[in-house]
Design a protein around this nucleic acid. Structure first.
Lengths: 257, 257
DNA sequence: AACAGTGTTGCGTCTTACGAAACAATTATA
DNA sequence: TATAATTGTTTCGTAAGACGCAACACTGTT
């Protein structure tokens, strides 16, 4: 193993780091901009980005000459088979729910101790909406989906998770293990989880569990929106809608109560 | 420039080659399998795949220990902004058309002289269906979408394209420039293109043009299915349905006749 | 015209990637 | 059950390839 533990091929890692530097907020990046951000020489970044462009993972705007993520990524993503069953089964349900409640609906799974959004349906009529969340990895203790996964863990596993330091994101983030534990008990009692401005100020999210044929919680369906629209008074109704949708998805995945 | 013209960083190119080796037919690959296929030493492939796994672009099945494409690709693909307007506008139309005609519906664009499918809607009720086409790049002369793009090129550009060797894929592939040119004229006259077992035996496809606000053809909408279901007698009706759907998409992109 | 910033290219250096060989584990075959 | 074949990983030495520096060309701003 080289000087950097857990590392393999440095230039491939750098290429991946470049790909990850693009976001919904920053769809176009320049060589010098990334050179500064990644702490690499601009000739190094230039060669890496050109190689990614030649390979189709980046494209270059002919006018601005800056780089964007390439359409070949769409093709690669379409070949991803992990969670394919739940993603395919869930899509029409998520779309219908988004249309019904006129808020952003997500499908999340756990990966490497974080929750990550795999599908997102955003109502087109709203101007204020929670977009660009697909692929986003978030801590579990301060997201509705994450808390839902934690809630249904066996007691030992839940205990182990609560022993990690709980990072504060907002004034409302639960950072005391005892408080979080009690909240997770309430999740089990209600059947759905709530994150009220715990990840971001002004953002409320509710989530319900999707189970596979073995009963294992494999995904979470959630509704997200601004706090002035998704008020606490609406939590029970939205929660029940989510539980209902999640149950239908679970049923199609072979789950029987 | 190194010994291989047009090349930049060899290990990044190799990593991309590994990503491209996965397909709908081969969602799982092993180290030795790819070593043979790519002509690289298995220790090289092993390191490349581990680096891609650590970076989230591959995942490893804990049981088979073989590699798959990783879910982080979903997140990257979601950040791709190229053709984002036409993709977003087209989606509900494509889904509705797929439901209506009960066949696979695609959205294609031209990239580097080939057509590539960016969106695909597959009817769930059919057992025989044309799946796994997103990301697939195909020659233009033998695909409905490709012929549609060629048909609406300015005369000089069309002429230039016809001077390239036209590869034969089936007994029905048009490989004589004069024959293809005449067929393209018919595309313009009808308003839609047809590929009747020209790319693959048993596969029939019909395509219509999507235009942006400037009138430029930016994408193609197509219906694909087995030849015993999409028979020549159905071409006119399906063609008109496609022209109609493509016109609606074009209108939302700002195109005015 | 001068300056600042961006991105590319040539070059020399040396770090990193590579392949060979050996090894451990698993699977297939007899 | 024993043996053979295959897979994937690790160590090691080598050199090919990646890297950073400096110079350059181009664009935009003052």
């Amino acid at each position: 193993m080289k000087g950097r533990p857990g590392s393999e091929l440095q230039s491939v890692e750098r290429a991946i780091e470049i790909l990850r530097s693009f976001s919904y907020e920053r769809p176009e990046r320049g060589v010098s901009e990334l050179s500064r951000e990644l702490g690499l020489h601009k000739s190094t970044v230039s060669r890496l980005m050109r190689t990614l462009e030649q390979g189709g993972l980046l494209s270059r705007d002919p006018e601005s000459e800056r780089y964007r993520l390439g359409i070949d990524l769409i093709g690669l993503a379409a070949q991803v088979v992990d969670y394919i069953d739940v993603r395919q089964v869930a899509r029409p349900f998520l779309r219908a729910l988004s249309d019904l409640c006129q808020e952003t609906v997500n499908l999340s799974v756990v990966d490497a101790g974080r929750v990550i959004n795999l599908e997102q349906f955003v109502p087109q009529t709203r101007r204020i909406r929670n977009v660009g969340q697909v692929g986003r990895r978030m801590c579990m203790h301060c997201t509705a989906a994450g808390k839902m996964f934690l809630a249904y863990l066996p007691p030992e596993a839940r205990g182990a998770q609560l022993h990690f330091p709980l990072e504060r994101f907002t004034a409302r983030t639960l950072t005391e293990p005892g408080e979080l534990d009690a909240d997770l008990d309430r999740v089990c009692a209600r059947g759905y989880a709530v994150a009220q401005e715990e990840l971001e100020d002004g953002l409320n999210v509710i989530a319900a569990p999707v189970r596979d044929h073995t009963g294992h919680v494999v995904a979470a369906v959630s509704v997200a929106g601004p706090a002035y629209r998704i008020t606490p008074g609406m939590f029970p109704e939205l929660g029940h809608q989510l539980v209902d949708v999640a149950a239908k998805i679970s049923e199609q995945l072979g789950y029987r109560v």
